[in-house]
Design a binder for these strands. Structure first.
Lengths: 146, 146
DNA sequence: CAAATTAGTCAGAGTCTCTGACCACTGTCA
DNA sequence: TGACAGTGGTCAGAGACTCTGACTAATTTG
């Protein structure tokens, strides 16, 4: 048995991640954005300012394109995204964020900033900077999309 | 300005977490432990050495006790856990890890150690230590179970 | 002891995700 | 040019995960 005080780094990463996600979702729901789910949000988060292809969204979110299509359908119905033809490829369509999506993003960004500030207050400026630095570095070997 | 990354800390935390989880699952599958799912694993992970109550598992995994019961049923069928009556409370039962669970845990722990070593090589000993230190500190304000 | 609480189950439904099969368009190369 | 492999996306079906609501049984509390 490993000493109980020595949690593995995976759990240590997951705990604050989940705490942050919970905070963001609670705030979005309170602001009236209660008609989309975490799974939909994880896709929506990856839509670029000029629209993004379904396949690309699927790859980045690490889900199949069928699943991505399913989620985008719901987001479209709820008015968060629209699909327009891709001018450069007649097979493809671009998933674009609608006004409602940007409004939700603004709320989300606000909460993220708030939580990050709380974390910085708890850790101190120096440790917070080191944390982000280490995580950014780690991204080089853990993010297939980096 | 940190031009290194505009990603929010949440994504930065999630990326390495997911990479680690993927590695662990791939290794478990390769070692023959391919008869349980990520959701089941997240519950199994929280079983203490002397057994843990269903409700406690549910709380720690942040799922309802119904869902936890569903997942434990599957784990029981697959031979990873057993349920024994709680001697201190006739309503309750203790979910206990079976031999198979500890064997899987050994494989998982090995991979986690391996990945952590890779991360340490990439970050350097000092940064890795800082990372774990910051995350441990963060746990104080983000882990309801700390 | 009655009432409130806690551990867990049963039933039903909705959501998320996958595999496999398929169509339409694109790019390549003989 | 024209077959054909590859890519973008959809349809259909199924399995997995999760929830809410309602319930039983045992425990704790006043």
């Amino acid at each position: 048995m490993p000493a109980e005080s020595e949690l593995n780094t995976g759990v240590l990463l997951f705990l604050p991640y989940r705490a942050l996600e919970n905070r963001v979702f609670a705030a979005l729901a309170e602001a009236g954005f209660d008609d989309f789910t975490p799974a939909q949000a994880r896709v929506m988060q990856r839509i670029g300012p000029n629209g993004t292809r379904l396949t690309e969204l699927a790859e980045q979110a690490q889900i199949t394109k069928q699943t991505a299509g399913f989620l985008v359908d719901q987001l479209e119905k709820a008015g968060y995204v629209t699909r327009i033809p891709d001018p450069t490829d007649k097979r493809a369509r671009l998933v674009c964020g609608a006004e409602k999506a940007w409004a939700a993003k603004e709320v989300a960004d606000g909460v993220v900033a708030e939580v990050e500030k709380e974390w910085e207050e708890h850790l101190g400026k120096r440790r917070m900077k080191q944390l982000r630095e280490a995580l950014s570095l780690l991204r080089e070997i853990t993010d297939p999309w980096a």
